[in-house]
């Protein structure tokens, strides 16, 4: 089983709102040094989905990440968990893209890797919340996709996926090669062992530049964008919360009930 997992490095999406700033002149987010970089959470689950299949069936996991200033401690994490290889598309020409130009570069890299049965992506990146790169890679490669998976099982030449739906889930089967996007319903992800971490320190990533993957310069990064950002802004929150007081928690509770009845909310 040859597997590929696409991971994106993002600023910790659960950092407090107070550390979130936007530069209105450039329509970009201003990174705050107190907020760490992490692997986008759904991508960690994508790695876990691949590791589970490797546990069951064996195989090789190649991890690909596109960006600049990719922190080795961050992007090497899958290696410490059991992934075999790390490819970085690390070049200024690759960044500033939209879902389409990012998918174009990732698909070109996947073609260069050559052999693959399954590709895993996160259901959406925690910064852009775009949720499209997986489907675009699948379209470019002409392979089936199943999105928002909570369980993935590989059975000779096919993959059986529990796909999360609004009111439950669906069991969907597609032939391999296929692309699966993974959601948090997959469950907890494993932790690195000391041995794994040490081993990953010794492993160096492979770096590919646009020319290495035969990418047309006009189709990657900011140059390849189909989507233009007109504006990025923070919504204003009007906070006028009335705190209901009382001697004890029980008093506060009773006062809340009275208040809600008084203003006809219940």
């Amino acid at each position: 089983m040859n597997m590929i997992v696409c991971i994106k490095q993002v600023l910790d999406p659960e950092a407090p709102l107070s550390s979130f700033k936007i530069d209105p002149a450039t329509n970009t987010m201003v990174p705050v040094t107190s907020v760490p970089f992490v692997i986008s959470p759904f991508d960690e689950q994508a790695v876990e989905a691949a590791l589970k299949i490797k546990d069951a069936k064996g195989g090789k996991i190649t991890v690909i990440s596109l960006g600049v200033n990719l922190l080795r401690d961050v992007v090497k994490k899958p290696l410490s968990l059991g992934a075999d290889e790390l490819i970085l598309l690390e070049d200024p020409a690759f960044i500033g893209g939209d879902s389409w130009s990012t998918a174009y570069a990732l698909a070109a890299a996947i073609k260069k890797v050559g052999q693959f049965d399954l590709i895993f992506c996160g259901r959406q990146a925690a910064d852009s919340d775009s949720g499209q790169v997986g489907a675009c890679i699948a379209e470019i490669l002409g392979i089936p996709q199943v999105s928002v998976a909570k369980k993935v099982e590989a059975i000779d030449g096919k993959v059986k996926v529990d796909k999360v739906t609004t009111d439950g889930y669906e069991v969907v089967e597609v032939p391999t090669p296929a692309l699966i996007t993974v959601s948090n319903e997959l469950g907890e992800v494993r932790f690195a062992t000391f041995k794994g971490t040490m081993a990953s320190k010794k492993k160096e990533p492979i770096i590919w530049k646009p020319a290495d993957i035969g990418a047309e310069p006009a189709k990657i990064g900011a140059a390849g964008r189909r989507i233009k950002t007109r504006k990025l802004f923070q919504p204003v929150r009007d906070s006028k919360c009335e705190i209901i007081g009382g001697e004890t928690d029980e008093d506060k509770a009773a006062n809340l009930a009275k208040k809600l009845v008084e203003v006809k909310l219940i």
């Binding site: 906070s239 705190i243 509770a253 009773a254 009275k258």
Partner: peptide
């Protein structure tokens, strides 16, 4: 609390039963 209209600061384990009883 920045998005709420009404708020209670306290332990839900005490608040919820008392709130339900009063309602």
């Amino acid at each position: 609390f920045k998005e709420a209209r009404f708020g209670v600061v306290g332990d839900w384990k005490k608040i919820i039963p008392a709130f339900e009883a009063k309602v």
